[in-house]
């Protein structure tokens, strides 16, 4: 969260106004790692919930 990157972000500037040359929000390496970990947690949790519910639902055809 507090890992400012030094890269210039004007590359993606679509309007050409207000050039920004730093990343005050901190979206560098540490941020990307946390975001990736969170994505894995979310996907794994959803997969767990879906599989458990599908197993429960299968009782409709087997029970």
């Amino acid at each position: 969260m507090s890992t400012p990157t030094a890269r210039n972000d004007t590359a993606g500037n679509t309007t050409g106004s207000t050039p920004v040359t730093r990343d005050p929000a901190g979206t560098g390496g540490a941020y990307r790692t946390i975001a990736a970990v969170l994505a894995v947690i979310v996907i794994a949790a959803l997969a767990y919930g879906l599989v458990q519910t599908a197993l429960k639902a299968s009782a409709l055809f087997t029970g």
Binding site: M1, S2, R7, D9, T10, A11, G12, N13, T14, V20, D23, P24, A25, T27, R32, A35, L38, A39, I41, V42, A45, L46
Partner: peptide, 28 residues
Amino acid sequence: SILDREAIIAPRQFNRWLIPAAALAIHL
């Protein structure tokens, strides 16, 4: 403050697909 909106304005080339996981985190 690190909690304020001004502290979390993304740079313009930010990958927006990182955001849904954050939103899903609280809803899950």
